[in-house]
Design a binder for these strands. Structure first.
Length: 814
RNA sequence: GUCGGGGUGGUGGAAUUGGUAGACACGCAGGACUUAAAAUCCUGUGAGCCGCAACGCUCGUACGGGUUCGAUUCCCGUCCCCGGUACCA
């Protein structure tokens, strides 16, 4: 009797696909294109677990379906292979990260091939490969050579900026730039030296160097981006993170804030993901208002407010403790109080400040500000509820309309002035209503909210004391990392005539700038990044760069952040082996954008935002055709681990540990321990295997208290991870049931978008289904039963009903 | 707090636009085959009622209302769960 033999079948076809290059795809203008992309994985040492393939299976099904529908389908796979774990491993063992990475990738590829995915492996990319990161460095260079013109609302080359400087100076240039950029005329521009002109352009570029408050993680010896920090500690490693002012490469993503927001309305993503990006960008419409400081002519406090209409309700001002004006305006008798407060704020970690929302604290500077609308004197305080990093780091406080201001006013005995006749309960809390007519409000008395705001803004603009303004929460991205295993920033430094180093781009002909070898992967003894250990890591003239002139120049020592390589990779798949361009214009014109992108929701404010940013930039510069890179996006839910626990009775003798079965644990005082799920079947522990993994309890040394003759493990659903011993590897399942069963089963587990625990309870049913299916086409002797006869009417009916059903089910998924 | 998504048998979950609720599968129970087991196949399986059985009846998609000939689906309110975010002026 013959039966379904998954090993033989799958081996045969995987070999056939390999030999025939079945999944290879070439550009073909006679067919419509369709691009199905998976978020490429970081190749970790643990290999693939059963959670990884979920999205890959779905996208593979869809790719095959689209091919059968006559589309030319691009469905590639690659590796996001720069990353911290390989570097950490290198620090511990001295093994080069490239080697570890290579081994891990080989394992991933083997596992992915075993699962029978229809990837075109000829297009595979690896972000850590010099032939790939050459183009990551090149894009960095293009950003460096560009500025953002607000008038045309797009990025342009630096040449258009210097031309404008030569014609009319910078007074009419409307562009995001360094806030300390002086205004100059065309004549002044022409009078500058070449170095001075160059230094001036550095203030406008889309990548630039600035002193920035960064998340410094001493444990990792590196700067982290906001999305790499969770609850005040590093996401990887869990080391404490502190705020520190450092000179850093920055990327001007804020120039694109509005377009990143607008683009969301044109793409087919889930509402929750779009909301996450909207919140992250954090647009708020309001006004900037200048308050003069009484007795300090020329010193203004500029505030941002979304409620200018409440301006007559201002009874005090609050500055962030870090605000630069604080030291200048504090009066003699308030000095010690202010100093103490600043000290106590510094001591409180970011975590405490955020966690403690309720208590009110602050200190009076002794100075007063003048309300520009009625010249009323209001006291200036400092308090840590005002954040230095948002808006201007100063607020006008309106206790009648804002709860935090109300709390502060009540605590310090400051007046609370109602400004709308619709406001209630002023004694117990603030009322943020916009209903009613204004009272106590000078020029807007008797008006409604809708009427008042334009009147106020016009009044301020006429007198140059304020203007309408849109503010974003989004900050420019810190682009430098003090690490080894990343793309070197392709920049060298040369001193100007005053001996100040200026950054210059390494010419395209000298790319890629390859990672040098270093003896150790740690920062140097003098605190430089690991690249500072590289011998001869100095710029040599290679291709006649006019500025390098033969002498020695220093390379930039920082490397790029993890998201650099993944912010454009979908283009590289279009033309993966091109040595002259990141992808040929022909390939890009054919494949254009990703039609369906499948991946996890954890990249909402990282990868998915940076990728949209770089894509818009590349579009501005004419390299790519579409404003948005990912038309449709589906987030597959996480497959969680199902951890198993054994319970050890507390206080027992260490030489003879006692473990009690889950059902009886209430009768003892126990502590739960994770136990490897691979030695547990249907929650029953294999005691012999358990003993074998734990030398301390081998032989007769441990006692097990059983129920019904078995040791039952406790169960908890947690994230799948090595440290929780709940990782299920797909290889064992493929070996036992075959890739088809695993794929079908994962699709059967529940809705794709939903998180769900891994659980093999139902896998036998799926396996039975496939075997039944196989037997529809083979008899007991293993003979192929399908005949080349004209089908009957009934058979055709079944066939077409099936086709319709399959089509509808698959289309509804996308 | 706030934004987003959800709540359907013992379990995972179906139900396309408001039209037979519970597809398919797991589990469970019974049966066939077998010396026995595995595998395979067949039958039953939301709760309750009447009954030997068939036929049939009532209730039922978190809870309370509403719209409708008809509601898991639409509207209002309440409770609970999951995810994001957190002094953003």
């Amino acid at each position: 009797m013959s039966d379904y033999n998954h090993r033989e079948i799958e081996r045969k076809w995987q070999q056939f696909w390999e030999e025939q290059q079945t999944n290879r795809v070439v550009e073909d203008i006679s067919k419509p294109k369709y691009y199905v992309l998976d978020m490429f994985p970081y190749p970790s040492g643990a290999g693939l677990h059963v959670g990884h393939p979920l999205g890959y299976i779905a996208s593979d099904i869809y790719s095959r379906y689209k091919r059968l529908k006559g589309f030319n389908v691009l469905h590639p796979m690659g590796f996001d292979s720069f990353g911290l774990p390989a570097e950490q491993y290198a620090i511990q063992t001295g093994q080069h990260p490239a080697l570890t990475t290579e081994q891990n990738i080989a394992r991933y590829i083997e596992q992915l091939k075993n699962l029978g995915f229809s990837y075109d492996w000829s297009r595979e990319v690896r972000t850590s490969d010099p032939s790939y990161y050459k183009w990551t460095q090149w894009i960095f260079g293009e950003l460096f050579n560009s500025w953002y013109n607000n008038k045309t609302d797009q990025a342009e080359t630096i040449e258009t900026l210097t031309q404008e400087f030569g014609h009319r100076g910078n007074a009419r240039v409307n562009a995001p730039c360094d806030e300390n950029t002086p205004t100059f005329t065309a004549a002044e521009w022409k009078a500058m030296s070449a170095d001075e002109q160059y230094a001036m352009t550095l203030k406008y570029r889309l990548t630039y160097v600035a002193d920035a408050t960064v998340n410094w993680c001493a444990g990792l010896g590196s700067v982290l981006s906001n999305d790499e920090v969770k609850d005040g500690v590093s996401e990887r490693g869990g080391f404490p993170v502190e705020q520190k002012l450092m000179r850093q490469w920055m990327m001007r993503i804020t120039a694109y804030a509005q377009r990143l927001l607008d683009g969301l309305d044109t793409i087919d993503w889930t509402e929750s993901l779009k909301e996450q990006q909207r919140n992250w960008i954090g647009r708020s419409v309001g006004a900037m208002v200048k308050f003069a400081v009484d007795g300090y002519p020329g010193h203004n406090i500029e505030v941002f407010t979304t409620r200018v209409d409440t301006i007559y309700g201002v009874t005090f001002m609050v500055l962030a403790p870090e605000h630069e004006l604080v030291s200048q305006i504090t009066t003699e008798d308030q000095k010690s109080e202010i100093q103490d407060y600043i000290q106590s704020t510094k001591k409180r970690s970011e975590l405490d400040r955020v966690a403690d929302v309720k208590s009110v604290s602050g200190a009076f500077t002794g100075a007063y500000a003048l309300n520009p609308f009625n010249d009323q004197k209001v006291p200036i305080y400092i308090a840590d509820y005002v954040l230095a990093g948002y808006g201007t780091g100063a607020v006008m406080a309106v206790p009648s309309g804002d709860q935090r201001d109300w709390n502060f006013a009540t605590h310090f005995g400051l007046p609370i002035v109602p400004i709308l006749d619709g406001q209630k309960n002023m004694e117990t809390e603030a009322d943020a209503t916009k209903e009613g007519k204004y009272i106590n409000s000078g020029i807007i008395d008797g008006l409604t909210f809708a009427e008042a705001t334009p009147v106020l803004i016009q009044w301020m603009e006429e007198r140059n004391i304020g203007k309408g303004k849109i503010n974003y929460r989004l900050r420019d991205a810190v682009f430098g990392r003090q690490r080894y295993w990343g793309e070197p920033v392709p920049v060298y430094y040369k001193n100007d005539e005053n001996g100040q180093p200026l950054p210059y781009l390494i010419s395209e002909a000298d790319l890629p700038l390859e990672l040098p070898s270093v003896g150790k992967y740690l920062p140097t003894e003098t605190g430089e990044p690991p690249l500072g250990r590289a011998e001869g890591w100095k710029y040599q003239e290679k291709s006649g760069d006019s500025r390098s002139g033969g002498s020695r120049y220093d390379y930039e020592l920082s490397t790029m952040p993890g998201w650099a390589g993944s912010s454009w990779y979908w283009y590289r798949y279009m033309d993966a082996h091109n040595a002259d361009e990141f992808a040929s214009p022909e390939a890009i014109a054919y494949w254009r954008d990703v039609d369906l992108y499948v991946g996890g929701t954890e990249h909402a404010t990282g990868h998915l935002l940076y990728s949209r940013f770089w894509n818009k930039f590349l579009k501005d510069r004419g390299y790519v055709p579409e404003e948005e890179p990912f038309k449709k996006l589906i987030n597959q839910g996480m497959i969680q681990g199902r951890s198993s626990f054994v319970y050890r009775v507390k206080g027992d003798d260490y030489s003879k540990p006692v473990f009690v079965s889950a059902g009886l644990r209430d009768q003892y005082e126990v502590s739960g321990l994770h136990v490897d799920v691979n030695i547990v079947e249907n929650d029953v522990l294999d005691i012999e295997k358990f003993k074998a993994t734990r030398p301390d309890i081998a032989g007769e040394n441990a006692e097990f208290i059983l129920e019904d003759g078995k040791y039952i493990c406790g169960v908890e659903v947690e994230k799948m991870s090595k440290s929780k011993f709940n990782v299920v590897n797909p290889d064992d399942i493929v070996e036992r049931y075959g890739a088809d069963t695993l794929r079908l089963y994962e699709m059967f587990l529940g809705p794709l978008e939903q998180a769900k625990p891994w659980n093999t309870n139902g896998i036998d049913g799926t396996f039975r289904f496939i075997r039944k299916f196989w037997r529809l086409f083979y008899n007991d002797a293993g003979q192929w039963l399908v005949k080349d006869e004209v089908p009957t009417k009934d058979e055709l009916k079944v066939l077409h009903k099936t086709i319709k059903k399959v089509q509808e089910d698959i289309e509804s998924f996308s």
